[in-house]
């Protein structure tokens, strides 16, 4: 569980997590924004179905894989939140394209 420093500087950005409206700080990565919004697990693994959350925050561990604007398996910690972005947590192996 993480919380924002009360005087954190920057504009607020509106985006969605699994369809629910959420708020990020401009410059937040998707992974950071998920943590700031109290998301416990961002995905379940394709191997055992275990829940996972961002672990390294620097593009190394691939535990923060999420679906962003319909594109799956994106590293949440490497993508900056943009207004209106649609972020979805992932279940197992992401659905192959339609």
């Amino acid at each position: 569980m993480f919380q924002r420093l009360p005087d954190a500087a920057g504009e607020r950005v509106s985006f969605t997590i699994d369809g629910r409206v959420a708020e990020a700080l401009a410059g937040d990565t998707v992974a950071a924004a998920l943590m700031a919004n109290g998301v416990v697990a961002c995905r379940t693994t394709p191997v055992s179905g275990a829940p996972r959350a961002p672990f390294c925050m620097m593009g190394v561990c691939f535990d923060c894989l999420v679906t962003i604007d319909d594109v799956g398996n994106r590293q949440g910690c490497q993508v900056t939140v943009r207004p209106g972005m649609r972020v979805e947590t992932q279940k197992g192996a992401r659905e192959a394209a339609r």
Binding site: M1, F2, Q3, R4, L5, A8, A9, L25, G27, D28, T29, A32, A33, M35, A36, P54, F55, C56, M57, M58
Partner: peptide
């Protein structure tokens, strides 16, 4: 280190 990145880039603390 990951948590420190959250602090530096997003002003997030546990």
């Amino acid at each position: 280190g990951a948590a420190q990145i959250l602090l530096k880039s997003s002003a997030l603390v546990p």
